[in-house]
Design a protein around this nucleic acid. Structure first.
Lengths: 255, 255
DNA sequence: GCAAAATTCCTAATATCTCGGAATTTTGCT
DNA sequence: AGCAAAATTCCGAGATATTAGGAATTTTGC
């Protein structure tokens, strides 16, 4: 698709702002994007005008309030978030102590957590966090999505991430990978242990949109420790998560 | 400041997306902004490329995941949010049942709630909500900021909102308004009842940045009902909120 | 599988952007 | 308060990218 080159360059500035480097000077932006100082000022000025950036300490720019405002709009309008909110809460309540509920969404061959809920969070490190893009290949919340991708998309992913797929033991060639995803797809909901965070156990089920395309996943994270001696609880959690996934899929079809 | 006209027009599209109207077709965008169809597609394409918009139902665009991602970055980097988080939680815990804690920030003569926290929320309607811009003139969270604006800014606000100021009984001319704000500034923390939501009572204290400029406010909202017969509790809440405000101001200076 | 809607493609006149450097304002510091 | 340094705005002209409109193509809804 044809784009507007100038606007594109201006917007590309936004991508510089990350959690690792959330503050930029105009000079640094200009240096990074090979812009003259005056042009860098014009570009940054546009984003400041839109509220996407704000000047903090003089010369230092950070993400602005428009982001917070847009986030609120996104939260309120996104059908997945809306339909899943109540189900996610109920899932966490029924799952017992020490669990975190996650609602994730597929976006450009990545996974983004769009909602999280917890009553008494476990004392473990969790990578999934609202607004943080995650790889599609590791962790149950991701894999629940990955293995349900349409063949065409799966293939594109495989070609892109061949090494990562092999490293995760999901197959050295396309045929093996296809077989492995088929196997995992059948064993839903998915469980993963320590793939993203040591000591964390994830249980996730896929969520599908109206057209039966995979949309995202819903699931729980808890300390692996907590269920080591308790395989029965894991079975219960799998059941709860599985029906939560179906409930969300169902809710997305009806209203 | 000079801007890039094209990029500015592209970014102006974002402003069309509101909670009232969170979904737009390319045609409607084009009609609203007087753009040809092809140009509208180019513009929208830029924003889609940046992840700020996504196509949902075909032809219908909504706010995209980049907004969620940027929101996370904003939350993690904003010194106000970071320094106030723990204080806000403690404030709510100590304030007893049925309160909502709010952290608000001044932005372009408006007020935006940037964090909220509650243990057992009261069953009242509250307008302040994370990410929602609010007027600077109504509600304790806003007024706590308003009355602490530097004279120059206050004047600008008065000239802009002369009618609203008069309607709120804050003075019919600049001198009266100045006197009234001085009076309110001295009686911090501020209390308001039902200014934004009928039946809601707000208590808020100002928060200042390193340079002693007003940055925002911290406070509580609860059902007016809950303290009607209990003036002593109101006094306690004022004290708690007041010290929370000072604590945040202090925290912002030190680290 | 068809009609309608959505989206992409095309081109050339032209409106706009970009740059360097100078001018000006703001800031940090004593 | 006042000074030097940094940040930001201003400027104009050559170079470049943008735009409209309609046609072509793809996708969607039924």
């Amino acid at each position: 698709m044809k784009k507007v080159a100038t606007a594109d360059r201006v917007l590309s500035i936004l991508r510089l702002f990350t959690t690792e480097r959330p503050e930029w000077t105009v000079d640094d932006v200009g240096a990074e994007l090979r812009l003259s100082a005056s042009t860098a000022y014009e570009y940054v000025g546009c984003l400041v005008g839109a509220g996407l950036l704000v000047a903090g300490r003089t010369g230092h720019y950070t993400v602005g309030p428009a982001a917070i405002e847009l986030d609120r709009i996104a939260r309120r309008v996104d059908p997945l978030t809306r339909n899943a909110r109540a189900i996610l809460r109920k899932l966490v309540e029924e799952s017992g102590a020490g669990t975190i509920g996650l609602l994730c969404r597929l976006y450009r061959l990545q996974v983004m957590c769009v909602d999280e809920y917890s009553i008494n969070p476990p004392a473990i490190q969790t990578s999934y966090e609202r607004g943080r893009p995650m790889p599609l290949i590791r962790g149950s919340a991701s894999k629940a999505i990955l293995v349900n991708l349409p063949a065409r998309t799966l293939r594109r992913f495989f070609d892109l991430e061949r090494e990562a797929v092999a490293a995760m033991g999901l197959g050295r060639d396309w045929e093996a990978f296809k077989a492995e995803t088929r196997r995992l797809r059948r064993s839903a909901p998915l469980i993963s242990i320590g793939e993203l965070d040591a000591g964390a156990l994830g249980v996730s089920a896929p969520v599908f949109g109206e057209n039966d395309l995979i949309l995202g996943s819903i699931g729980l994270v808890l300390a692996a420790e907590a269920v080591r001696e308790d395989p029965a609880r894991v079975e219960i959690l799998k059941m709860l998560v599985g029906s939560a996934g179906q409930a969300v899929t169902c809710a997305l079809r009806s209203p």
